[in-house]
Amino acid sequence: MNIFFKINNNKLYKLLKSLYNLFKAKFSQPLIGIILPVIILLIWYFLAVTETIRNSLLPTPNEVLKEILILANEGTLFSHIQITLTRVFYGFIGGGIAATILGILTGVSPFIRKLFDPTIQALKAVPSLAWVPLFILWFGIFENSKVALISVGVFFPVYLNLMMGIRQIDKRMIEVANINNLNLFQTIRWILLPGIIPEWITGLRSGLALGWMFVIAAELMGASEGLGYLMIDGQMTGRPALIIGALILFAIIGKLTDELIYLSAKPFLKWKESLDTMQGGANNA
């Protein structure tokens, strides 16, 4: 009987240990990331409830949640989110494609780099809001000017990372391709593309983050829909809960879209020793 219990205990111990290990492997990392937002939430809650900061300036988390739920019930929240997402999506695609083409060309050809790069580097220094009047003049007040502005934001990080990635490709690897008689297509498929994908993905993630920043700039300038518009609406009507709610939604959706790129890129980067390093690097950008 004792032996039976011992075996069962051993099995139970192993089962519990494997469950613990699984939990540790699967959930400990995301849980660590949640700690800071929870602390911020608690501090916010404390400051708002005790009215250390006036309620008209800092509403409680409950009030913010209530404001978001009201919008959701009205059915307008999702259309605001959808319109912002659509703008970011088109801006991301447009800026991403343009940057990828130019990044490859300037990375591969020193002549094209000398021709384009100084101008692109100069334009990089122009603040996002400085583009707004020009784009409104060129593309009108509606969607095109907003998408163009977001594209500009996405363009620079993708372009810079890709160009540097191509320039930093180890020439010795190309020699390996040459000595093994790889043709151009094989060299691109087996050596160039896998070599530049990490930098390209980092550029796309940084570009997306800037795209989210630029969409706010775009929506603050005369939009009638979108999360940026909600913030302006909140400011005009004196509803800080709406402003904070829109801010939180920006943060959550921004993080989710970044995670989407990260997860889509993961199969191409499994050779990397530490994906966390790359993820951290991109997030810091």
């Binding site: 010795r172 390996v176 391709a177 093994n180 790889l182 087996w190 050596i191 050779w271």
Partner: peptide
Amino acid sequence: MVFQDPRLMPWLNVYDNIKLSIL
């Protein structure tokens, strides 16, 4: 030719690195 450094592609495992010569 074998070089001073192995020049293995870090994104390919051992099998695929060798496969590069006989694609």
